[in-house]
Design a protein around this nucleic acid. Structure first.
Length: 466
DNA sequence: TTTTGAGTTGTTCGA
DNA sequence: GTCGAACAACTCAAA
């Protein structure tokens, strides 16, 4: 009997699923499995985690879809290092298919599982699914990985063709799915987690949720370029969480963006290329999770003044755009991309805190948290990453605020204590005279600025000069 | 090997 | 208020 297994991880969908297609193509009986990984879940300090709920709901939806096609989903909880080889043996699956994951911990886990399977005469077959081009597919003429985005993007676009954007026709082969014994799905509480406000926040998990969001964004894509930098506008795709957990296919999104003419789609496609770029860098240079990409900056000692990090986390720096951004993150698990840059630049270059602390904080809070993209973004903001112009990258939080939240409507939404502050002062409320402070008292209703930007900027430049 | 052009998302200063 | 130049000078990628 020709039997295979598909191990779902961050590809929680059926449509255009590479691992599922390869298994269905190769075997007459295909078992599907998902493992709630206790090695990851047990380490999470906060048991009210929207990501766990997103995964849990998406896995439930995946099981219902598989069952409606005559198949099923084995849902287990524990360490996949043992559970995957055991289940493969129990089901008689010779090959386990899975989508390749480029995070160092996943690479190590997969090598471990592969070795176990091999010893038992089976094998783990990892296939490309999360990116358009993997680390060894886009190289310079010298055969080395790109370290600069623009030439990487040119090479990426030059290599793009119908083959790399093609859809795996999974739907044609679903007759090979094997059912799973009907077992109750583990509840969130069984794993020690509580339910969250995910649905109230408007996040729809699962493949259907991703598709709904995608259809809604396609209506707005032509305006993406002009509107994407304004956090008060519904401009971003908000698809990052679906790409993170694979409830949408990157090939489907990239193909649409590539075929859809216009500046909006081109700009958005660039963002998808950035995603491939950072995945490639992490796969090639796994040490960048803890060390500066540019080694000459790795020894840089950040002053990290006491209380600065805490004030930033708790949205009380006294700079409205930064605090509003941090409230958006703390309250909703999401932060607009422009604000991620402003908040990151402020923590590192105004508050002089090590970028790794900010990266870890985002890791705790972001629903769409992706190690590769987050590390890449923080290193770029800190000026220690793949491009070398730190003096260009010290955002002025007031100028950025005036430019990208001109009416202050985003600020007022997340900082209602500033609602009555006149437009003229919304970006820098400490400039109000005592009589103007009736609307909001700086010092009691809202904190005074934690640092002086001009002085903090000078300190950063000196720090980089060495 | 050497040379050349370019580098996501900016800010500040002085006219 | 608006405009252009300076910022500081390095690394990458391709010719």
């Amino acid at each position: 009997m020709n039997t295979a297994m598909v191990w779902f991880r961050r590809d929680l969908r059926i449509h255009d699923n590479a691992a599922l297609w390869h298994a269905l193509k190769a075997a007459r009986r295909v078992h599907c499995v998902f493992v709630f990984d206790s090695d990851i879940l047990d380490a999470l300090p906060d048991k009210t985690d929207r990501r766990v709920e997103f995964i849990h709901a998406s896995v439930g939806a995946l099981r219902r879809t598989l069952e409606s096609r005559g198949g099923g989903l084995h849902i287990l909880a524990g360490s996949p290092r043992h559970l995957i080889p055991e289940l493969a043996a129990e089901l008689g699956a010779m090959t386990v298919y899975a989508a390749r994951d480029y995070e160092p911990a996943a690479v190590e886990r997969d090598a471990w599982v592969a070795e176990r399977l091999t010893k038992a005469g089976r094998r783990l077959e990892l296939v490309k699914d999360q990116v358009i081009f993997e680390a060894d597919e886009i190289l310079t003429a010298a055969g080395t990985p790109y370290h600069v985005f623009s030439p990487f993007k040119r090479a990426w676009l030059a290599k793009l063709d119908a083959f790399h954007l093609g859809t795996y026709p999974v739907e044609d082969l679903l007759g090979n799915l094997a059912p799973a014994a009907p077992r109750r799905m583990p509840a969130l509480a069984d794993m020690g987690f509580r339910s969250t406000d995910l649905i109230e926040l408007g996040v729809q998990p699962g493949e259907a949720g991703g598709r709904a969001r995608w259809e809604e964004f396609r209506e707005r894509i032509d305006r993406y370029r002009e509107t994407r930098d304004f956090p008060a506008v519904n401009a971003p795709s908000r698809l990052s969480v679906h790409l993170r957990f694979g409830t949408l296919s990157i090939r489907e999104l990239a193909r649409f963006a590539h075929e859809h003419a216009g500046e909006g789609a081109d700009t958005w496609l660039s963002e998808l290329i950035w995603r491939d770029f950072y995945q490639m860098l992490l796969a090639r240079y796994p040490h960048i999770t803890r060390h500066a990409f540019q080694s000459r900056f790795d020894a840089l000692v950040w002053p990290n003044p006491p209380d600065h990090y805490q004030a930033w986390c708790e949205a009380r720096t006294g700079y409205p755009i930064v605090d509003a951004a941090m409230r958006q993150l703390n309250q909703t698990g999401y932060m607009h991309n422009r604000l991620r840059m402003i908040a990151a630049s402020f923590l590192v270059k105004d508050l002089h805190v090590d970028w790794r602390q900010g990266e870890r904080y985002f890791a705790q809070k972001l629903l769409d948290y992706d190690l590769a993209a987050n590390v890449g973004g923080w290193q770029w903001s800190a000026g220690v990453g793949t491009d070398a112009q730190p003096w260009f990258r010290i955002f002025n939080p007031v100028t950025q605020s005036e430019k990208f939240d001109p009416s202050g409507s985003f600020i007022r939404h997340f900082l209602p204590e500033l609602a009555a502050v006149p437009d003229k002062f919304i970006h820098a409320p400490w400039k109000m005279t005592p009589t103007q402070r009736l609307a909001c008292c700086i010092g009691s209703d809202y904190p005074p600025p934690l640092v002086d930007h001009t002085r903090a900027r000078a300190t950063t430049l000196a720090l980089f000069r060495g």
